[in-house]
């Protein structure tokens, strides 16, 4: 099991390095379009629903994952320190909590495949039929 996790981790890293592209993924049952503005709002806690008004549950990758840094800098336009400062403002004022963090691409895929409200991002190379890609960066 540990071997498998390590394998998936390494795979995730190498594909991310090779392609340096990330895919934003939702449940295949989710028909909403998601703009980069929407992503900003969802992942910064300023919105909590999709375009059709249904609930959205953003999922982050753990810090240290290659796609996380790509997402933070390309989509949210912030460094990880800036994001940490941003969330500490909301957390310590009781105004918000950061998106849940999952260990790796496989965990995000599993969560998105099993939850119609979920939205996450993974390295493009990890995409398969269990999730639907709504944007790439």
């Amino acid at each position: 099991m540990r071997f498998l996790t390590t394998f998936v981790l390494i795979l995730g890293f190498t594909t991310a390095l090779a392609q340096a592209e990330i895919a934003v993924v939702v449940n295949p049952a989710n028909a909403n379009a998601v703009s980069s503005d929407d992503l900003n709002r969802l992942f910064l806690g300023r919105a909590s629903s999709f375009a059709d008004g249904s609930k959205a549950t953003p999922l982050n990758l753990a810090e240290g994952q290659a796609a996380r840094e790509e997402f933070d800098s390309k989509v949210l336009n912030r460094s990880s320190a800036q994001l940490k400062a941003y969330w500490s403002k909301l957390v310590f004022t009781g105004k918000g909590t950061p998106p849940k963090e999952l260990a790796d691409d496989a965990a995000v895929k599993a969560a998105v495949a099993g939850d119609s409200t979920a939205i996450g991002y993974i390295s493009s190379g990890s995409v398969d039929g269990s999730v639907k890609v709504v944007a790439t960066f």
């Binding site: 940490k84 400062a85 500490s88 403002k89 310590f92 004022t93 105004k95």
Partner: peptide, 10 residues
């Protein structure tokens, strides 16, 4: 005001 004690935030 809300986070003036949280030095990390500024």
């Amino acid at each position: 005001s809300d986070y003036m004690d949280v030095g990390y935030a500024y």
